[in-house]
């Protein structure tokens, strides 16, 4: 097990190094000089040069790469070209919205998908199964921003249970923050839950056909007990894979929902940074997201090994 973790950990580090080189390289290739952009079209050549020197843009690419990486390791992501504020602060502020939002959406999605998928699989071919599968089909098909607008219409405008958008900040108390994130989280969770329920169902159905399920029944377990004790853990491998992918998506891909609900999250930050050519912010946020994806994959790998003893090689 220790060896397994070490191998995974080393592949995590290698992935991070490669990703940082690729991201830095891509930003280098993109045309446009941030200094010129910041100063506008009428700026003097020497003013631009002075700004370039101030921003550290006159150093060689290799030196800048190492400065960038060593800064990130110590938590210093540099200063935004546009806002002249530390990128670390900007990201931290946004992360406090995006991370809870992703976590809540993921929790919701899992809480809905597991029981629904299990129910459909254990009643395969029945009316219940058909109805559940119909709803998940619908959940995958409906665009989540449309569903979000529908919810705003019902719960914010008509019923007035929630506000239609915006985020009061965590300073107003946990409840106010959670309340503001509820509708966005539900809109994000719906398609994810539908996908996850379908994966859960098919993984479980595959497991139910395995020979060891017959052995379990022949031991005297009821169908329910057999599913709980023998089938679920075996069906978890594909489900964990999907959960890992979904978390990464929820963290970075919430931009449309953030816009619908006017939430200052990471998605909107990166969108603005790109349009303002605030490359250092783009670089840092992308790197952060890559880091999150790689760490989540690492966590999923560890979870595989916890579930499946065949993956834990003896040390």
């Amino acid at each position: 097990m220790t060896r397994y973790i070490l191998t995974r950990l080393s592949s995590l580090l290698i992935s991070l190094v490669i990703a940082s080189i690729v991201i830095f390289g891509l930003i280098e290739i993109i045309p446009g000089d941030p200094a010129a952009f910041m100063l506008g079209i009428n700026a003097q050549e020497d003013t631009i040069d002075a700004l370039r020197a101030e921003l550290g843009l006159d150093a060689s690419p290799i030196a800048r790469y190492f400065a960038w990486v060593s800064g990130m390791v110590t938590g210093d992501f540099g200063t935004s070209y546009t806002y002249r504020t530390p990128v670390t602060e900007m990201i931290a502020e946004r992360l406090w919205i995006s991370l809870p939002l992703a976590l809540i959406a993921l929790a919701l999605s899992t809480l809905i998908a597991f029981p629904v998928g299990i129910l459909a699989a254990s009643k395969r071919g029945s009316i219940t199964d058909t109805v559940i599968m119909g709803f998940t089909q619908l959940g995958v098909a409906i665009p989540n921003f449309w569903f979000a607008m529908l919810m705003v219409l019902v719960f914010a405008i008509n019923l007035r249970w929630f506000s239609a958008g915006g985020f009061p900040g965590w300073d107003d108390g946990l409840f106010a923050g959670l309340k503001a994130l509820t509708l966005p989280a539900i809109s994000l969770a719906l398609p994810q839950a539908s996908i996850l329920a379908r994966v859960m169902r098919s993984a479980l159905i595959d497991t139910l056909d395995e020979d060891f399920m017959r052995t379990a029944r022949a031991k005297g377990l009821t169908q329910r007990q057999a599913i709980r004790r023998h089938a679920l853990r075996n069906a978890m491998i594909p489900v964990l894979t999907i959960i890992g992918l979904q978390f990464s998506f929820l963290l970075a891909g919430a931009i449309i929902i953030e816009n619908v609900f006017f939430l200052p999250g990471l998605g909107r930050l990166i969108f603005q940074a790109i349009s303002q050519r605030d490359l250092i912010v783009v670089e840092s946020v992308v790197m952060l997201l890559v880091f999150a994806v790689i760490v989540v994959n690492f966590a999923v790998d560890i979870a595989y090994a916890l579930v499946d003893p065949r993956l834990r090689r003896k040390a």
Binding site: E210, F212, A218, G220, H230, D308, P309
Partner: peptide
């Protein structure tokens, strides 16, 4: 009844299958 059958299976009557490679749950010792 299914309840009586569950009591019987594995207790009074047991079965050994053809495929030993897949007849055991791979995740439990």
């Amino acid at each position: 009844s299914e309840e009586d059958l569950c009591k019987m299976r594995g207790n009074d009557v047991s079965i050994v299958f053809q495929e030993p490679m897949t007849a055991l749950n791979p995740l439990k010792n």
